[in-house]
């Protein structure tokens, strides 16, 4: 069966719906990382609806790991749309008796690994990719990471070993929103960023694109050589779509009040990056 052509406009429309949905959920629970979810939404949605081979069977389909686990709403809304998790779970996010937490838990349908502490997802993915290679399983692993996460030493251990082990079916998508909890990433460690050359020097194929542009994300990942593990650096805006959240650190974890919610809803209706 031929793969249908990638529909970037449909992914954009989805992301608009997802932003609304996440804002709705934010009105029932405080423990929601809205801004980090909004910055990685196009990276997550393009993975699911443009890059991943999805069969519904975890044994054969591509794997998705949200290494920046605090962006979980971005993955949950996709899983909801795919029918993997019921809407009631999202509507009862972080409530006793329901399984969805601020960070994804292994064992929840659609969640391939527990994350939440930064710097774990890529190492887990390297192990999965090694096993797939060993067992001749032809599938890709997609890992969404944050740029602050790149400060974890464990990430560099994973970056170090993957190319040397001949791992090729591994795609890391970095949400380059230039923010971490306390401020701007590039100002926190100014001599550490940018990343492109460092990642290439570690033996990875690496491309930087607009991380809110599904077509650009799709095309860059599809054009990879397949001879090395691949990193896509996606330039993004933290809190993308809501003006007062964009690049304002407090929105890393704050939920909008009723008035702020109304403003946000109006703004995301018009958000078409």
């Amino acid at each position: 069966m031929a793969t249908p052509p990638f529909d970037a406009a449909a992914v954009q429309a989805r992301c608009q719906r997802y932003r609304r949905r996440i804002l709705d959920i934010s009105q029932t629970v405080g423990a929601l990382h809205i801004a980090p979810s909004f910055s990685c939404l196009e990276l997550v949605a393009t993975s699911y609806f443009g890059l991943m081979h999805r069969t519904g069977d975890p044994e054969t389909e591509d794997t998705f790991v949200l290494s920046k686990g605090h962006g979980s709403p971005a993955q949950y809304v996709v899983l909801e749309e795919l029918g993997v998790i019921p809407s009631a779970w999202l509507e009862n996010f972080c409530r006793p008796g329901f399984p969805l937490a601020t960070h994804p838990d292994y064992g929840t349908p659609g969640i391939a690994a527990s994350t939440g502490s930064l710097g774990h997802g890529l190492g887990l993915a390297v192990g999965m990719a090694y096993a797939d290679k060993l067992n001749a399983k032809a599938r890709d692993i997609f890992v969404v990471m944050s740029d602050g996460e790149l400060q974890e030493g464990s990430v560099w251990e994973a970056l170090m070993v993957a190319p040397s082990f001949g791992i090729t079916r591994l795609v890391a998508l970095v949400d380059l929103n230039d923010f971490q909890s306390l401020g701007q990433t590039s100002k926190t460690l100014p001599n550490f960023y940018p990343m492109l050359d460092k990642l290439r020097a570690f033996g990875w194929e690496c491309v930087e694109v607009d991380g809110h542009n599904p077509q650009a994300i799709h095309d860059a990942v599809k054009a990879r050589s397949g001879t090395k593990p691949f990193v896509l650096l996606g330039r993004t805006t933290k809190g993308k779509g809501v003006s007062y959240m964009e690049n304002v650190p407090i929105w890393h974890y704050r939920a909008p009040n009723a008035e702020e919610y109304q403003i946000a809803i109006k703004e995301v209706e018009g958000c078409n990056p």
């Binding site: 391939a112 190492g123 887990l124 192990g127 999965m128 096993a131 251990e157 070993v161």
Partner: peptide, 14 residues
């Protein structure tokens, strides 16, 4: 760290 992380990833694949 990658020794143990990779072990967990391998185990996630059976």
């Amino acid at each position: 760290q990658i020794m143990v992380g990779m072990c967990a990833g391998l185990a996630l694949r059976g």
